[in-house]
Design a binder for these strands. Structure first.
Length: 111
DNA sequence: CTTTTGACTGAGT
DNA sequence: AACTCAGCCAAAA
């Protein structure tokens, strides 16, 4: 639930939409930045989606660890304790990584 | 105010 | 497969 009185709530609408979609991703599923961007109606804004999650004022509510890049690879610039932490969280949700440390998108990507 | 940076992607080399 | 370039746009410097 988004509290519009929260001082951190300075988004300009678009961020809000991104958070709303990410929050809908169920446990055991992942999605990509581009996919989220497409769902907001602007497929070309994948970079902005990444920026939105970088700010991620709803880190407690938004499962940002379920977002991966288009290759099913975790973002190296993830700043939540490192990719190791993100990977651990995903494995606890039942998501398996292959030897390259990537996720099988055909199997886990949320649609 | 202008310029750079960045949790990205897709096409081209 | 690895690298470059272009496009997208909000925040930070």
């Amino acid at each position: 639930m988004i509290d519009r009185n929260d001082p951190k709530m300075k988004n300009s609408g678009y961020f809000e939409k991104v958070y709303e979609i990410v929050r809908l991703v169920p446990a055991g599923r992942v999605t990509t930045y581009g996919r989220i961007a497409a769902m907001t109606g602007y497929p070309a804004r994948s970079q902005v989606v990444g920026w939105a999650l970088h700010c991620n004022p709803y880190q407690g509510d938004v499962p940002c660890h379920r977002i991966v890049d288009r290759n099913g690879r975790l973002s190296e610039s993830y700043v939540f304790g490192g990719v190791g932490v993100q990977r651990d969280l995903l494995e606890k949700e039942g998501i398996c990584f292959n030897e390259e440390g990537r996720i099988d998108l055909d199997k886990y990507q949320w649609k």
